[in-house]
């Protein structure tokens, strides 16, 4: 395959007599978007939005296929890409699970098996409670948990994953003890909260927006250094920007955000990474992307590979400490 590509390329270059720098790598076969979550999950949504943006605006001639490989909290997809070493057609979508998963279980891939391409958004985390909950703010919520340890049931998506890590960080920072109940997805945790079967969850805005709009759940605070972007009223007279940050509200946890990341198998040509970055830069200008960011209330970013690598490293250091404390590290 490589031989043929090179061969065609040499032919083309000699025929034209020039080698344009930006045309150094170009897809010649369908690109596979490897999604490390099941259909309908957050990672699936961003991948399909980007697919739609590319196809509708014809940003590349290459065909794009989306494949869902969400088994083992996404490990299935990462292993799949890691095994396709040097294959620039396996464009892989994940979150922070790419570099955190290998710590909690022996999964058959290392975080270095993939190289970072970009992170395009940061998803926020909020503390949500039921509409009839007695806790009006984060402070009284934490006080109640302290007064009655393990009486508050915190729901979340999966086990030893972002949600449970955040709950553990809250416990550590405040000294309050909670009971964590893992569900299959954030969507399930949202419905369980709306039905008042659990007391709180730490869902992303997008996972709870339906219930929030209907006034069935109430946000207490957001784990972000500053309040969320201003916008129209979402629920009653409340807009996203009316939600206090958790630090303001008295929980000493400044930031907890989840990056929506993109990766390629290790060993791909430098130019291929560049081609994808250019493609994503074009995606950011599309109407579809802007609507996606607005609809899901995420914070838009555009990390370069080195920025993402640094972000990952910082987060790894912080999170591994939590894993160690909870005894989740895989031997």
């Amino acid at each position: 395959m490589l031989k043929k590509t090179t061969f065609t390329f040499v032919m083309l270059a000699s025929a034209l007599g020039v080698v344009a720098a930006e045309a150094a790598w170009k897809p010649e076969r369908p690109i596979e978007f490897v999604v490390t979550s099941g259909a309908g999950g957050g990672t699936d949504n961003i991948a399909r939005t980007i697919q739609a943006a590319i196809q509708k605006n014809k940003l590349t001639d290459a065909n794009i296929i989306v494949t869902n490989k969400g088994g083992g909290s996404g490990a299935e997809g990462f292993v799949y890409s890691a095994m396709a070493k040097g294959d620039p057609y396996k464009f892989t979508f994940g979150t922070n699970n790419e570099y955190l998963l290998p710590y909690v279980a022996k999964l058959g891939f290392k975080s270095t098996d993939l190289v970072p391409v970009a992170a395009m958004a940061l998803d926020e985390f909020l503390i949500w409670v039921h509409k009839d909950s007695p806790y009006k703010d984060a402070k009284s919520f934490i006080e109640a948990a302290k007064a009655n340890p393990e009486s508050i049931k915190f729901g979340g998506s999966q086990s030893k994953d972002t949600d449970q890590t955040l709950v553990s960080i809250i416990s550590e920072a405040t000294g309050a003890k909670f009971t964590y109940i893992p569900f299959k997805s954030g969507g399930e945790a949202a419905v369980q909260l709306a039905g008042a079967h659990i007391d709180a969850n730490v869902n992303n805005p997008n996972e709870n927006i339906g219930q929030f709009k209907a006034g069935m759940v109430r946000p207490l605070c957001v784990f972000s250094p500053k309040r969320m972007a201003k916008g129209p009223k979402v629920s009653g007279d409340m807009a996203w920007s009316d939600i206090p940050t958790c630090k303001e509200a008295g929980i000493p946890v400044e930031t907890y955000q989840m990056p929506r990341t993109q990766w390629l198998p290790a060993g791909v040509p430098e130019d291929a990474v560049k081609w994808y970055i250019d493609l994503l830069a074009k995606v950011r200008q599309t109407e579809e992307w802007k609507q996606y960011i607005e609809r899901t209330s995420q914070t838009e970013v555009f990390m370069s590979p080195s920025e993402l690598a640094k972000f990952a490293k910082d987060e790894e250091a912080k999170t591994v400490a939590v894993f160690k404390r909870e005894g989740w590290l895989a031997q």
Binding site: G71, S73, V79, A105, L107, S159, K160, D161, K184
Partner: peptide, 20 residues
């Protein structure tokens, strides 16, 4: 495969193909 509730990999005996 992966157990949602405990987050542990069960009965995979180290085979990568069994994770899913």
């Amino acid at each position: 495969g992966m157990d949602t509730v405990s987050g542990s990999l069960r009965l995979t005996f180290g085979f990568t193909d069994l994770i899913k």
